[in-house]
């Protein structure tokens, strides 16, 4: 088997696809993390209807395959609401919906991992509810959230490849276009797969390093 030199000429295209993939999945993770954190706190609220909304949101969006969400966010919203979203907005929205439903569960588990005694100590010291969260609960929950959050980022980054079906030119779509031009399927897919692997393995290492950095001394 011979590597097609032609494919290598498209390196700029691979690079821009990679940057796009990193950007959109990072954006989805940040938005998903923020929305997920809000959903998690709703889920832990004493107010019944807030809990109900959170449960429905989480269960709904984490049960639907990303492909369906991409179709819905691109074609569905346009069809149902007459709102034409561009591929970038649709893809970001679809990824954020999935990521936020996964992050909601990660954050909830993190907060629930902090023992009742921590709440009692902080409340007894005269802290307001916000201070209790900020200085005592969140710093401890964050440590528990890090490993699963890394997992969510990796899966969000992989899910972003599905955005190729709505014409968004991220890494997978870039590869498909290069393949059409060069006709070298195997080489192109090998390069793309390698790039995904390197990124995700790098993320995994970063997650591990962060985890060690914030480890609580026992």
């Amino acid at each position: 088997m011979q590597f097609d030199d032609n494919v290598a000429h498209y390196w700029r295209f691979f690079l821009s696809g990679t940057m796009t993939t990193l950007w959109i999945s990072w954006l989805a993770l940040m938005l998903g993390g923020a929305i997920g954190a809000i959903i998690a706190h709703m889920r832990l609220s004493r107010v019944g209807w807030l809990r109900a909304v959170a449960i429905v949101y989480t269960e709904f969006f984490r049960s639907i395959p990303p492909l369906m969400l991409f179709f819905f966010c691109y074609y569905g919203i346009s069809y149902a609401l007459g709102l034409n979203l561009n591929p970038f907005t649709s893809a970001t929205l679809a990824l954020t919906l999935t990521a936020s439903s996964l992050m909601a569960e990660v954050v909830r588990a993190g907060i629930e991992s902090v023992g009742r005694g921590q709440w009692l100590a902080a409340i007894s010291a005269g802290m307001t509810p916000l201070q209790v969260f900020r200085y005592v609960i969140w710093p401890q929950a964050l440590r528990v959230c890090l490993p699963p959050a890394t997992g969510v980022y990796i899966s969000t980054l992989k899910d972003s490849s599905v955005a190729s079906v709505i014409g968004y030119i991220e890494l997978t779509r870039s590869g498909l276009l290069i393949r059409e031009t060069t006709g070298s399927s195997f080489d192109v897919f090998l390069i793309i797969a390698t790039i995904y692997f390197v990124i995700n393995y790098g993320l995994s290492l970063c997650g591990g390093a962060l985890e060690r950095r914030f480890r609580i001394v026992h």
């Binding site: 921590q118 009692l120 100590a121 007894s124 010291a125 005269g126 401890q140």
Partner: peptide, 15 residues
Amino acid sequence: RKHIGMIFQSFNLYP
């Protein structure tokens, strides 16, 4: 609560 200190059986220090 700012004027009442509480000490618990299980210490409850912030780890």
